[in-house]
């Protein structure tokens, strides 16, 4: 039996520093401070780090990752897992390319090509999300293995549809989205605001958290567990589809291997942002900070001329470090 007594606050000058440190470590914006501190430290040594063009490059890298991470955040708070986000990104990219491409698209040249392509990409996201949601709720398959299977299935499908080729010749109306950064920014900000509002201001958000904490108790308390779970996987698929739109527009090709190596960035950013894989605990803003931090790392190391493999190694280390810090901070919170 643990005593349900709160320890008296530590006082005195030494306690002041300690409690300050503790407050920083347990602060909700810790990751933001860390990201800013990182940027401030590296700025003097990194040529071209503080410049308008680099700011744009940073943003262009971060936006699609952020969009996908937001959907995953919802699923993780629900206590689920979705490994198939990168499969959605590549499959939607291929489907979009197949419809819109001027060279080989089914609607090549049609004025409706762009809206139809975008709609089809969103539909792919919702569809894969619905498959995940169905397998997880109706068939009660653990989310990890269900989405692992759909990851393999749908990324395999994307490769098969194109036989590994990239699809070029996307219509200018679509590619514009990649060239005008403010458009992508507006879309991502809108999507983030939507997720934030849904999570903190609606019944749905309360239900997602309750299911993440304890699905059995949630069901007995009248939460429509299956409906909410299904909807969350569909939402995650849609977010990934929006991410795919941003990726595809920026790279101006439909690519069956699009984002294949970004799973680490997506999952890692959410974890760095303090969302728990046990469910219940997590914040949209935390994920935004997490993506910011990872993007800063990626961007600065690239500018410093590090090779791809060194950057990958360091990113792995950053995620481990973040997880370590989170463990430490939970210990502090538990002791308080």
């Amino acid at each position: 039996m643990t005593p349900n007594v709160v320890a008296p606050p530590v006082s005195g000058p030494a306690g002041g520093i300690l409690s300050g440190l503790r407050r920083l470590l347990t602060s909700e914006s810790l990751v933001l401070w860390l990201a800013l501190a990182y940027a401030a430290t590296l700025a003097p040594f990194t040529p071209g780090f503080v410049s308008a063009s680099n700011g744009q490059a940073l943003l262009a890298y971060a936006l699609p990752i952020l969009t996908a991470s937001l959907g995953l955040t919802l699923v993780l708070i629900l206590g689920g897992m979705d490994l198939s986000v990168t499969a959605v990104i590549s499959l939607a990219s291929v489907v979009g390319g197949r419809i819109m491409s001027a060279e080989e698209g089914w609607m090549a040249g049609s004025p409706l090509a762009v809206p139809a392509g975008v709609a089809a990409m969103l539909l792919v996201g919702a569809g894969v999300g619905a498959v995940n949601g169905w397998v997880v709720t109706a068939c009660r398959v653990p989310a990890f293995i269900a989405t692992l299977a759909t990851l393999m299935l749908f990324s395999g499908l994307a490769l098969w549809m194109t036989q590994s080729r990239k699809i070029g010749g996307l219509p200018p109306g679509f590619v514009l989205l990649g060239q005008r950064l403010w458009m992508a920014t507006a879309i991502t900000a809108g999507v983030a605001a939507l997720a934030q509002a849904a999570l903190s201001r609606t019944l749905y958000g309360q239900w997602v958290r309750a299911i993440g904490y304890n699905p059995r108790a949630a069901r007995i308390s009248g939460v429509p567990v299956h409906r909410v779970t299904f909807a969350t996987y569909v939402a995650c698929g849609l977010f990934a589809a929006v991410s795919s739109i941003l990726f595809t527009a920026a790279l101006e090709t439909g690519n069956p291997e699009m984002a294949r190596d970004n799973l680490l960035d997506v999952v890692g950013a959410v974890v760095i942002g303090g969302t728990s894989l046990y469910g219940g605990r997590g914040r949209i803003l935390g994920t935004v900070f997490g993506v910011l931090f990872l993007s800063l790392v990626d961007n600065s190391l690239n500018l410093l001329g590090l090779t791809f493999y060194n950057i990958t190694m360091i990113k792995g280390g950053v995620i481990l470090g973040a997880a370590l810090m989170d463990a430490l901070r939970n210990r502090l919170l538990a002791a308080a």
Binding site: V267, G268, Y278, Y309, G316, G317, L320
Partner: peptide, 30 residues
């Protein structure tokens, strides 16, 4: 990392997955 610091195996091994890939590429010089 998993036992000493009580971090979920999923997170640890996801990180070391990328870390290891980078390390291997470094050794083989891609």
């Amino acid at each position: 990392f998993i036992t000493r610091f009580a971090i979920m195996a999923f997170v640890v091994t996801l990180a070391t997955r990328y870390f290891g890939r980078g390390l291997g590429l470094r050794i083989t010089e891609t």
